[in-house]
Nucleic acid binder design. Structure first.
Lengths: 198, 198, 198, 198
DNA sequence: AATGAATGAGCCTTCATTCAT
DNA sequence: AATGAATGAAGGCTCATTCAT
């Protein structure tokens, strides 16, 4: 028990923590947070539930740790954005980078999208909201027309939802991502123009 | 037992079924489907859990019945849309009516938006997906550029998410709805033009 | 509501009580007493549960009434038997008539056989035990060898169980009943002889 | 918590599983499968219901595990029987051993006898039926007269039911068992003779 | 670094029964 | 002769969590 030679349970070194996060995210994204039980996660990893508690204090903490790890690039992006001049070029760059970042953590963002209800009253609910508002504040001039503000929010939603809503359309993922990015960029650009010359 | 003079439990006749739906939707939208227990619903109504089962066969059926009742206008809208010529005016009209419909059933659509994970494996998951695809097929020319297709999908998402995502912005709801509608209309219009003259 | 012309729910006169008994016995025999709910019975009859309570005070009373009606011939048989001289011929006649009686109320006896646990703590539990002991006392000479007493009891069980246990054997039911009867008669006959000349 | 000095909850180590089986069988035999709730079992053991679920996946599995453990000797007996020549001596030996085996697991067989309805649609229903048919196939020559086949089946039923049906007769259990065994042996012997010289 | 055993709370569901109409 | 609406009790089961080892 522990390590076997048949290839199962191979590398069981110090990476258990990581493996828990991986499996948890997979299941959370697939079935939702509430529907995924610790039993299930433990079984997939072939450890006991108690083992999970050695690495994480609660179920919520597993999710928080995943979120923190995977959403760090976004925090960095926001920080970078804040330090730039609020030009159109900056905004377009932000949108472009944001799109790439989302693509790099698809399961997490799919999870956030589909589990808003569950996440709302969890710690990461607020974290996520803060990040979103951070992004928004970079893209939107607070004095802009309401309609332009909506355009920016819409751009963000387009990026978020685009990835999952287009699953039943033909075409390879990267092509679709580019199309989504273009629409989002358009929206931000229109918003910027509107703000400039009302 | 039955009628009291403090105003509680007033009209307790044939409307229990309706009252269950009302309270259920309220709680589902507030806390999520999974987090809302039948005990909670029953307590709010001051009946026993078993009473719920007199009116509905399962928890899921409560949700289905709500969804069916409240989403009927959308079904009608889609049917109307299918029967119209696929002109720009039609599409704009659709979007306008859709926005109104959504506004008339805000809690349900907020619920659908925030509980995608839970809803996915429920009966209404498929129902909803079908309606959405119905809408999409009216708005989108299947031969259109991918980017124009994305524009249409984005318009729909904008309408959906607009209602909740803009909560922290100033302004009265109706004004915001109009702004959202305008952005969505823009998107559809651009998509239509793109399809016409590539 | 009530009588329709499509042939359903035809004769709905004063026979509801009887129909309840019929359906109940059918379901009790098929699924067991505990597994059969009043809801199920009511649904099959296309009436409400409350209607059952108009005709019977409790679930148990439905069963009792069935048992009383259907087991009356056995009571009569026992009374007849008690009045006869305890000759071998009498015993054989008893066994023969008993076999016929059982065949005439197969579902009830199948039910009694398969639901001993449930029936034990119901009113009919004792009723049934009393009837069985009545039969036994006619067949068995209390001074007989233990082994002959066992033979008589075995004869009774053979009659009871024979009907269900032989289902997977070939042959038509009546032929099988005859065979069972012969074995039971043999047993009783041997028991009688043993008692005569030890 | 854990060990007390009043004798209750003494040895609480790895034997919980066994204790569950013991108590469960006791209650199942006493009150029937359906009437015995997991709460009851848990209370008797002074553990929570959830503890039962640590050891067994479902209520049914508790029963299955009991059945498998306790009916193993019968499986072995059948296997042994199949390997023997089909002589009268073998059959008599089988019957004798079977009687002993039944006596060693009285509560289980009492349970099986009294809970046929409940057991029918459980996994052990088929298991039991298979074992019984195994026994029958050893005792019965498939070409024998129907009446001799009935004799064999009757012998089995006599062994099964004998134990419980004779409770109200005087005499110690072992004496009664012997009497039952003799009757059963007689039946099998007659059946064998009949088959030989019709 | 992880297990074995268990808990307390809660969940959805079903049932026999009641009663005013 | 029967319904519509509801109840109280209970049932099987699952979950996140704990803790001694």
């Amino acid at each position: 028990m522990g390590v076997t030679m048949d290839g199962t349970k191979q590398q069981r070194r110090g990476n258990t923590r990581q493996r828990i996060q991986d499996v948890a995210l997979e299941l959370f994204a697939e079935q939702g947070y509430e529907k995924t039980s610790l039993r299930e996660i433990a079984e997939r990893l072939d450890v006991t539930k108690a083992a999970l508690y050695y690495h994480f204090k609660t179920k919520e903490e597993i999710l928080v740790s995943i979120f923190e790890d995977l959403s760090e690039p976004i925090v960095e992006l926001i920080e970078w954005g804040k330090a730039q001049p609020q030009t159109l070029e900056t905004k377009q760059e932000i949108i472009r980078r944001y799109s790439e970042t989302l693509a790099g953590a698809t399961p997490l963002f799919r999870f956030m999208q589909e589990n808003q209800a569950a996440v709302k009253e969890l710690r990461i609910g607020e974290m996520f909201r803060n990040r979103m508002m951070g992004m928004r504040d970079i893209l939107i001039d607070p004095d802009a027309d309401l309609i332009d503000q909506v355009r920016c929010v819409s751009a963000m939603f387009t990026l978020h939802a685009g990835m999952f809503a287009l699953n039943d359309l033909e075409g390879d993922p990267e092509t679709k991502r580019k199309a989504v990015l273009e629409v989002a960029t358009d929206l931000v650009t229109q918003a910027h123009r509107g703000a400039d010359s009302p």
